[in-house]
């Protein structure tokens, strides 16, 4: 956890510091957080598919979709 100036010590946060209406609220924190989540998802997906799954040979091959696409069974 980084030490930024606006991270201040608050053992007890008052219920309502201020009222924030619809137009003045920009959920930038949400965007940041969910952006991080997005990156994690993309990384993990590639990791799972190309490392865990394709590295888990042998795999069932030679099927109808390939046949339709290429006209021959892949060997």
């Amino acid at each position: 956890m980084s030490q930024t100036a606006d991270e201040k010590a608050r053992s007890e946060t008052p219920e309502h510091d201020r009222e924030i209406g619809h137009d003045e609220f920009d959920p930038i924190g949400t965007l940041t957080l969910i952006g991080i989540y997005f990156l994690i998802l993309v990384f993990l997906w590639f990791f799972m598919y190309f490392v865990e799954f394709l590295g888990n040979d042998p795999t069932v091959v030679g099927g109808t979709l390939v046949f339709a696409a290429t006209g021959e069974r892949l060997r």
């Binding site: 930024t4 606006d6 946060t13 309502h16 924030i20 930038i28 924190g29 949400t30 940041t32």
Partner: peptide, 17 residues
């Protein structure tokens, strides 16, 4: 986040506190 900011939270992630 809206709740956190109304409670005085600030920053990109600092509001979580």
């Amino acid at each position: 986040e809206h709740g956190a900011r109304q409670r005085g939270g600030t920053g990109y992630l600092g509001w979580l506190k």
